[in-house]
């Protein structure tokens, strides 16, 4: 009995927690398949299910543009941030570039509420004539992901990595070769995990896009928010759009599970 309880109780707890986390998702999926009136019915009704809303978001709203913007900005900003963050992390860890002061300075930029940074950034883009462009959004997202990713990667270049690199240098490698042929491949799981996080950071970012984007450069989070109009919330298309915008993250999930856990659990050297 006792052993049975030990087996069952955790499952009950986990099931409850899973339901709490999954409920909003299930709710959104249900709403996306019904219409606005049914969506707000209490107690909930299933009503007639259909894919109208999914057609709707593509026909009535520039959903494809939002999606493409999100994707381009997330991919490009991550592709730029990742090598830079890797090099930064390496120089912090192995060369102690700038000492503790620079490291903390980089982190401090993330301590500020983004709302404080967004208006000066807008001013800068206005000055150089980049407002409402995708470039401005990529740069803005870089300002978030670069400090974050470099801090995340520092630990991968510390500790035993120094020995590996020394071994490579005695073996005949230059500093660059030691970095590219040994340090980077060994830190690859971490770099990959950092890349995935960078992508998600950009994909979900709202505030900078809200202020800096224009009609043609809005991303999904801002686009979705625009469905909450003064004429009421377009809850059903909103739900459908949310479901579609979740798909890339779901697609990344298998990689995330594998590499994020491996990447974050260090000790990859032993």
């Amino acid at each position: 009995m006792n052993r049975l309880a030990k087996k069952i109780v955790p499952h009950i707890i986990l099931t409850v927690f899973s339901l709490i986390i999954l409920m909003p998702l299930v709710w959104i999926v249900r709403v996306s398949l019904t219409d606005k009136l049914t969506a707000y019915k209490i107690p909930p009704e299933i009503g007639t299910l259909g894919l109208n809303n999914y057609v709707d978001i593509f026909e009535r709203f520039p959903f494809v543009t939002w999606f493409a913007n999100s994707f381009i900005i997330a991919i490009v900003s991550t592709a730029i941030a990742l090598p830079l963050a890797t090099a930064m992390a390496y120089s912090f860890a192995r060369l102690n570039t700038g000492g503790a002061l620079l490291r903390l300075g980089v982190l401090a930029s993330q301590m500020l509420p983004p709302i404080i940074l967004v208006l000066p950034l807008f001013g800068v883009f206005l000055f150089v004539g980049l407002t409402q462009s995708r470039v401005s959004l990529i740069v803005a997202h870089l300002s978030i992901s670069l400090p974050f990713l470099s801090w995340m990667l520092v630990s991968f270049f510390e500790g035993d990595m120094a020995r590996l690199e020394e071994a490579a240098r005695v073996d005949g490698a230059s500093r660059w070769q030691a970095f590219l042929l040994v340090a980077v491949p060994v830190a690859a799981p971490g770099i990959l995990a950092a890349g995935l996080l960078g992508f998600i950071l950009s994909w979900n970012e709202f505030l900078f896009v809200l202020v800096l984007s224009g009609p043609g450069t809005q991303t999904l989070p801002v686009g979705l928010a625009s469905l909450e109009t003064h004429a009421g919330v377009e809850i059903a298309p909103l739900a459908a759009a949310t479901v579609v915008s979740l798909l890339p993250v779901f697609a990344l999930l298998p990689f995330l599970r594998k590499h994020l856990i491996k990447g974050l659990s260090l000790g990859a050297l032993k």
Binding site: R163, L164, E166, A167, A188
Partner: peptide
């Protein structure tokens, strides 16, 4: 320098 070194923790390239 054309010398080789063996480290205490071996420092084999894990990849």
């Amino acid at each position: 320098r054309d010398i080789a070194i063996v480290f205490q923790n071996y420092a084999l390239y894990p990849h």
